[in-house]
Every structure is written in structure tokens, then in C-alpha cells.
């Protein structure tokens, strides 16, 4: 469009002002508030026993969720792209479902299934505590991150087609050999991207986890729960800022990784 310089500058100013007020200033603000008392204060605030425990729990959840999502995500993508079976469209829709479900609703659904009086509530008598235990937080996180790996791997599988796999077969490779040597390397960037998205969401999930966690400081708090309870329960505003800054740092790393991977993906 042939736009005059004035209108172009106006539009630019409007867009940037919106972004500055909504994104940039708040983010800089919290950074300033976190580091104004000095880096030492920040460091101390994220080295309290409750914070360390929250960090560990968060990483533990990530460490359980990522491998499960990789295995089942890749399996699902392979079945959807390579297989032809009845109900494929339905499975496709189910994979997208978590995108449409509110995190709180995820939590409530899990309570209705696994909680006391739920369909699977009986497992508690077997000593397997899902709701208000680690399994509940893990399942909640899997629910909200389920589409990522599938949706990133699927288009790659479509694009590479089956010829390379057939060629490997004619050269003597078994199904598993073909998978490890041909299919998996071919989808490595898509898979990595899906894993990064999964990690980011797992680190940051709040709504679903808060519903199914007993939320005891030092025991069953993730980093996001820690931010919330410091702000609300402890009236420890600074502590909340510090923990949020830590999470934000992780998010920025994720963002950079995503940008780098995007470039990598488009060049290979």
C-alpha cells in the first residue's frame, strides 16, 4: 500500500506504544523491582528451602512429562500420518482438545476422575495418591502439553514422506532400524521444537496444577505455585517478584531457543 510518511509513522507509534505499555514496561518494571535491592537479595530469595524445593519439584515434573510426551507424541504422530484406520479424524480432534480446555477445567476434570468418589478414585486405597500428589500434577501437565509434540512432528512426517523409509527397507533395514536411523533423525528439529514448547509450558503451568496440588510450601509447590502463595498467602511481594523473574528468565531462554530452532527448521 502506498502510505504517506505521516500515516506510517502514526501507525508505527500506535503499535509500538501498545507493545511498550502492555509488554515492555511491565517486564522492565518487574526486573527493576527484583534487582533494585541488589542481586544478593534476589539470590537469597530464590535460595530459600521452599524455593529450592519448588525448583526441584518443577524440574522433576518436566523430567517425567517430557519423555512421556516424546514417546506418546511421536507414536501418535506416526499413527496419524502413516496409518489409515477408522476414527482417525476423531483422534485428530482429541489431540487438539487440550488447546480448547481451560487449565482450571483440566484440574476439575482430573479431580472428577481420580479424586475421592471419582471413577478411578479407588486407586487411592491402593496407596496411589493422584489428586494432591505428584501423579496428579504430572497428569495435569501432560494434559495441557499433549498437543505440542504431535503437532510439531506431524507436518515433518508428512513432508519427508515414505520414500526414504522404503529405501531403507530395500537396503535391509528392519522397522526399528529404519525408525532410529531414518525417521527419527529426519524429524529431529520438529521434535526438538515440540519438546521446547512442552518444557516451557510445563515450567509455567499454573491453573491445572494448582487445582490438583496440596500446595504445601517445601513439599508440593511448583515454581508457579510458589509465586502465587508468596504474593497471596505470605504477603511477600518481593519474594513473588524474584520467583517470577526466575521463571521469566527460563521463559526468555525458551523464547531464544524457539527463535533459533525456527531458523534451523526452515533451513533443513
Amino acid at each position: 500500500m502506498t502510505t504517506s510518511t505521516t500515516s506510517r509513522l502514526t501507525l508505527r507509534t500506535l503499535a509500538l506504544a501498545y507493545l511498550v505499555a502492555l509488554l515492555a514496561v511491565p517486564v522492565l518494571m518487574i526486573l527493576w523491582r527484583t534487582f533494585e535491592p541488589g542481586f544478593g537479595a534476589f539470590w537469597e530469595s530464590i535460595r530459600t528451602p521452599a524455593a529450592i524445593s519448588a525448583m526441584n519439584l518443577t524440574l522433576l515434573i518436566v523430567a517425567i512429562v517430557v519423555p512421556l510426551n516424546v514417546v506418546f507424541g511421536v507414536t501418535t504422530a506416526l499413527a496419524l500420518v502413516r496409518g489409515s484406520f477408522r476414527g482417525k479424524g476423531f483422534i485428530e480432534a482429541v489431540v487438539d482438545l487440550p488447546f480448547a480446555v481451560s487449565p482450571v477445567v483440566v484440574g476439575v476434570s482430573l479431580i472428577m476422575l481420580w479424586g475421592v468418589g471419582g471413577w478411578f478414585g479407588g486407586v487411592e486405597h491402593l496407596g496411589f495418591r493422584v489428586i494432591f500428589g505428584l501423579p496428579g500434577m504430572v497428569i495435569a501437565t501432560i494434559f495441557v502439553t499433549l498437543p505440542f509434540v504431535v503437532r510439531e512432528v506431524e507436518p515433518v512426517l508428512v513432508e519427508i514422506g515414505t520414500e526414504q523409509e522404503q529405501a531403507a527397507a530395500t537396503l535391509g533395514a528392519s522397522g526399528w532400524q529404519t525408525f532410529w536411523r531414518i525417521t527419527l533423525p529426519a524429524m529431529r528439529w520438529g521434535l526438538t521444537y515440540g519438546v521446547v514448547l512442552t518444557i516451557a509450558r510445563s515450567l509455567g503451568e499454573f491453573g491445572a496444577v494448582t487445582m490438583v496440588s496440596s500446595n504445601f510450601p517445601g513439599i508440593s509447590q511448583t515454581l508457579t505455585l510458589l509465586v502465587n502463595s508468596r504474593y497471596i498467602d505470605d504477603q511477600n511481594t518481593y519474594g513473588a517478584y524474584a520467583a517470577a523473574t526466575l521463571l521469566m528468565g527460563l521463559a526468555v531462554v525458551t523464547l531464544l531457543l524457539m527463535t533459533l530452532l525456527d531458523r534451523k527448521r526452515s533451513t533443513t
Partner: peptide
């Protein structure tokens, strides 16, 4: 199965292993 037929197969679109 093709693995055990003792064949060599060349595809129209090469089917090159792109990551190798």
C-alpha cells in the same frame, strides 16, 4: 519382506537420506 529379497531399488525422487 523387501529387507530379505536381495534387491537394490532406486526411486524416482532419489529418496536420499537428507541428514546423511
Amino acid at each position: 519382506p523387501p529387507q530379505q529379497r536381495g534387491i537394490g531399488f532406486v526411486f524416482q525422487h532419489y529418496a536420499a537420506f537428507k541428514h546423511m
